[in-house]
Every structure is written in structure tokens, then in C-alpha cells.
């Protein structure tokens, strides 16, 4: 088990290097070290000497991928790519254009992101699965078909509409909750309710449909027929057999996103003024701050890969057929 996890972590290294390569290329395609120096030194009266000095000071004077002047291994290691990647691998994200420490920013903003994303995730999971089970129990009836029509309609509306409509209805017209903002602790609940509810609702359509199809696929399996032949009631068949087997495909889809919850939701946070990582990213995109975007890309990939590893581990816990 331990060796397996270790191997998975090692396997993640080439993937992260790949991710770095992609971001590095995107980054330097438009943003040469000269441009960076010019921006950092301020636009006025920048002499080439100043740029050179700035580059040497920060280590940006090296070539991108291959250093012909160095010897041996250093031909590869003494390059910008290796320098930048190794910084990222140490989670050293550097400073943003606004000259703030990105690492500190990220640390501070993870909490608010999680405060929205985690409740949304959990409530959505429970509601979607229970509704799906209900529909599977009543499959083929009017309830099932109507619910499916409603689900398709919910799916067909852009999430932006839900947010805007929710804000107008609940905040602007009815004044039930504040329109946006964030506070720490219990105080913050009134800010959180609306985004969480909207998040759950907008995912309801596709979620219920997905879980329902998983359960329906299970219900046509032979072992379900065996369970019925044993004299189990339909409800019991659903809960003790179908749900257990359905958990496996659900795990693949669900566990992988758990770590990514830290990243927050871009749209939701920016609409509701939540100071989380999602709005941080959006602001960075609007301000074209590449350093932050790069940091977020790397962080996102790391979290995704952690999610993959967690998925594999959860498989070994829930599926007796999988042995490590």
C-alpha cells in the first residue's frame, strides 16, 4: 500500500513537469524577461543596462531550455525552465504584479473558498444521490419522466442566470440575505447561504441525471435479479445492493474533485464578493497577472493529481476486487 502510494506520487512528477512546460511556454511566449523587467522597473526611462542588471539579479538572464555555455548536466539545469519549475515545486510562487507574496495570498484565501465550496459539494452530493435513488425507485412512472424533463430544463440554463436571478430575488427584492460579502465565523453564514443554494441548484439537473444513469445501469445487472429472487423488497435492493455497487463509479467522479474544492468557484466567488481563490484568479485574469495565473495552474494540477491518488486509494477501500 505504502509503496503503491509512493509510486503514484513519483508518477505524478512527470505530469507536473508537463504542466510546467505548458504554462512556461504560454508564459514566455508573450512575456519575455525583458518585458518583465520593463514592467517591474516602471515604464519611464529604462535603459538596457538596467534591464540586464535586473535580469542578472533575478536569474532571468539564462536561456530558456538549453544552456550551450554551461557544461555537463548544467547545460540543462542552468536554464530558465528548470529554475522556474523548481521554484514551483518548492511552492515558491514569487510575487504578483502588485508586488504581493502570492503564497501568502493563497494561504489567506483558501479558507473562504472552502467555506463556499465544501458545503455546496456535500449538500449537492447528498441531494443528488437521494433524488436519483428516489427516481430509480419510481422508474418508468410519471414522477420519473417529469423529473427528467425538469432536470433537462435546469441543465439548459446558464449558471450565470441562476446567480443573477438568485441575487435579484433573494437580496434585491425580498432582502433575505445580503447581496454579497463575506465574514469569518458564524457571522458569515448569511453570506454563504445564497451562493451555496445556487451552487447546489444549478448542478441539480446534470447531477441527478448522472447518478440516476449509474443506478439504472446497476439495476439491470444479474446480481440485482438474484437479490430480488432472494425475496428482498425493492427499497432494500436499492439500498443494500445497487447503492453499494453504484458507489464505485460515483467514487471516480467525486473523489477526484475533492482536493480541487480548495480552488473555489470562479464565477460564484466573483459575483458574491467572496475573497477566495476563485475571485483571486478572476481578478488576476482581468489584470492579466501571469504570475498568479501560473501559480494557480500549478496548484490546480497538484490538487487534481492528489485527487487521482485519493480516487485510487478509495477504490482499494471500497472495491474488494482491486488489490494493490
Amino acid at each position: 500500500m505504502f509503496i503503491y502510494i509512493l509510486r503514484r506520487i513519483l508518477y505524478a512528477v512527470p505530469i507536473l513537469i508537463g504542466v510546467n512546460l505548458i504554462t512556461f511556454m504560454l508564459f514566455f511566449m508573450v512575456n519575455s524577461p525583458d518585458d518583465m523587467a520593463r514592467v517591474q522597473l516602471g515604464a519611464k526611462q529604462v535603459t538596457p543596462q538596467m534591464i540586464e542588471a535586473w535580469k542578472v539579479e533575478r536569474g532571468y538572464d539564462k536561456p530558456l531550455f538549453y544552456n550551450a555555455e554551461a557544461s555537463g548536466v548544467e547545460k540543462v539545469t542552468k536554464t530558465l525552465f528548470v529554475q522556474e519549475s523548481s521554484k514551483l515545486f518548492r511552492f515558491d510562487f514569487g510575487r504578483s504584479d502588485a508586488n504581493r507574496d502570492i503564497k501568502e495570498d493563497i494561504k489567506a484565501r483558501m479558507g473562504p473558498s472552502l467555506a463556499i465550496a465544501l458545503p455546496t459539494f456535500l449538500i449537492a452530493l447528498v441531494t443528488n444521490i437521494s433524488l436519483a435513488l428516489l427516481l430509480v425507485l419510481f422508474r418508468g412512472t410519471v414522477l420519473d419522466t417529469t423529473a427528467m424533463v425538469i432536470a433537462v430544463m435546469i441543465m439548459s440554463v446558464s449558471g450565470l442566470f441562476y446567480i443573477i436571478a438568485g441575487q435579484v430575488l433573494f437580496s434585491k427584492i425580498w432582502h433575505w440575505v445580503p447581496i454579497s460579502g463575506y465574514a469569518e465565523g458564524w457571522e458569515g453564514i448569511r453570506f454563504i447561504i445564497l451562493p451555496v443554494l445556487i451552487g447546489v441548484f444549478s448542478g441539480l439537473g446534470s447531477g441527478v441525471r448522472w447518478y440516476r444513469s449509474i443506478f439504472l445501469e446497476q439495476i439491470n445487472q444479474d446480481y440485482v435479479r438474484t437479490a430480488r429472487a432472494k425475496g428482498l423488497s425493492e427499497v432494500r435492493v436499492l439500498f443494500s445492493h445497487v447503492l453499494k455497487n453504484g458507489m464505485l463509479p460515483i467514487l471516480t467522479g467525486v473523489v477526484v474533485i475533492i482536493p480541487s474544492l480548495f480552488m473555489g468557484s470562479l464565477i460564484m466567488e466573483s459575483f458574491f464578493g467572496i475573497p477566495g481563490l476563485g475571485s483571486y484568479t478572476i481578478d488576476a485574469i482581468h489584470a492579466q497577472d501571469f504570475a498568479i495565473v501560473k501559480a494557480m495552474v500549478f496548484l490546480g494540477s497538484v490538487l487534481y493529481i492528489v485527487g487521482l491518488i485519493l480516487t485510487d486509494i478509495s477504490y482499494t477501500l471500497f472495491d474488494p476486487r482491486v488489490k494493490l
Binding site: 435479479r225 438474484t226 432472494k230 425475496g231 445492493h241
Partner: peptide
């Protein structure tokens, strides 16, 4: 249906062709 559940398994047992798929794979 409820009465029938007491017949199935209790009064009439049944076995199927494919032993591979007829047992629930995740329950011992």
C-alpha cells in the same frame, strides 16, 4: 408484491446461469 417477497427465497429458491454476474461483486 409484499406477499410475493415472502415466497421468493423462502418458498422458492432460484439459481441462474451466469455465476460470474449473479453474485454481488462487492459483498462477501
Amino acid at each position: 408484491e409484499r406477499q410475493m417477497q415472502h415466497i421468493r427465497g423462502e418458498r422458492i429458491g432460484m439459481i441462474f446461469q451466469e455465476p460470474m454476474s449473479a453474485l454481488n461483486p462487492v459483498v462477501c
